[in-house]
Write a protein that binds this DNA or RNA. Structure first.
Lengths: 123, 123
DNA sequence: CGTCATACTTCCTTTTTTGTTAGTACCACA
DNA sequence: TGTGGTACTAACAAAAAAGGAAGTATGACG
């Protein structure tokens, strides 16, 4: 419960844009510092919480938990808890998550190309 | 000039991730509330500042200026000033900007599909 | 009873992003 | 001299995202 000005348009703008176009809606689900990376790491294989932590440089427990929760809520990642001690939890992509992988691959390809192009630009 | 803790890892994390993978680097260039939308509106035609303002719901002068400046700096958009009064400034996509359009189209397609899928989901 | 390992949660601070308000320069034209 | 239209800019405020530090439940094992 955060207090927010009753006239806030910050929140409204996001909602308007999300309804207005699937692109900004998607960006909203994928935005943030870690989400694309998490999806990427889950593409080939399911992984445990601790395994994700190992492969994601500098992420904290808190951020990993938060991002996974949102991805789960948004239907991109499935979470399976094994009733063991110590606990074991596995994360894997859903069908929707997998459906997105061509897109982030093309994003990665563009990113690498564009970076080279701008880095070698004169001026 | 904002003051920042010398030990801040927020900034560092972004840089690390951007260098680590073209996907997060790209996301960094495209992230934020308006950028993809601006690119999208410029895909078919060049537009003036005031024209962009008209087609972007609820954007403010300030945000439009900021986002255009970053897109220009990042080599996605070209800016042309005409020495007239009142001033006229036109924005258009660069080659890199155009190269990205298949990607945001697939993002949009995925977004629309995914939204339908999750909205109609039971539970 | 104390320790271990995993996967978290809670409370709080800092940093980043977005929005608000009120301006400015330019020159033609009335 | 005053108004009009365009494309901004500066100072400030609010909201959102990210990070830091410390704590919790579980049950096997010693």
């Amino acid at each position: 419960m955060t207090t927010r000005k009753p006239t806030s348009t910050n929140q409204r703008n996001r909602q308007v844009l999300d309804e207005y176009c699937g692109m900004t809606y998607a960006l909203h689900l994928l935005g943030g510092r870690w989400k694309l990376l998490i999806l990427y790491k889950l593409e080939q294989q399911k992984r445990r919480f601790s395994e994700l932590k190992q492969v994601l440089p500098h992420i904290t427990d808190r951020m990993l938990t938060l991002q996974l929760r949102e991805l789960e809520h948004d239907g991109l990642v499935a979470r399976t808890v094994f009733a063991e001690v110590p606990p074991r939890v596995e994360y894997e992509l859903t069908a929707s998550g997998h459906a997105l992988s061509p897109t982030w691959k093309s994003l990665e390809a563009w990113g690498n190309t564009h970076r080279q192009a701008t880095e070698t630009m004169p001026g």
